[in-house]
């Protein structure tokens, strides 16, 4: 099932399928290791619900929901 990262529940995991968006933000997501095939895991949300914290390629990354909406993933179920 296809799902964007900002819709993840805490503890949910998926594999990156493609990254939407333009220029700077997209390149930044790529540079940080969010590329097709990378496994991604939603570790937690900030106390106010946004931004979110994910584990990708073995390290912790934080990004906002608006940026997470650019990350399309494939999740099981």
């Amino acid at each position: 099932m296809e799902k964007t990262l900002e819709q993840f529940e805490i503890g949910e995991r998926g594999a990156v399928k493609r990254v939407l968006g333009e220029g700077k933000i997209k390149r930044r997501l790529f540079d940080m290791g969010i590329t097709p095939g990378a496994e991604i895991f939603l570790r937690k949300k900030a106390p106010l619900g946004d931004p979110i914290e994910v584990t990708v390629r073995g390290y912790e990354l934080t990004l906002r929901k608006t940026e997470a909406a650019c990350v399309v993933t494939e999740v099981e179920g």
């Binding site: 700077k24 933000i25 930044r28 931004p51 912790e60 990354l61 934080t62 906002r64 940026e67």
Partner: peptide
């Protein structure tokens, strides 16, 4: 500005 940042251990 975007907020895509590593959270170091």
């Amino acid at each position: 500005p975007p907020f895509i940042m590593e959270l170091p251990a």
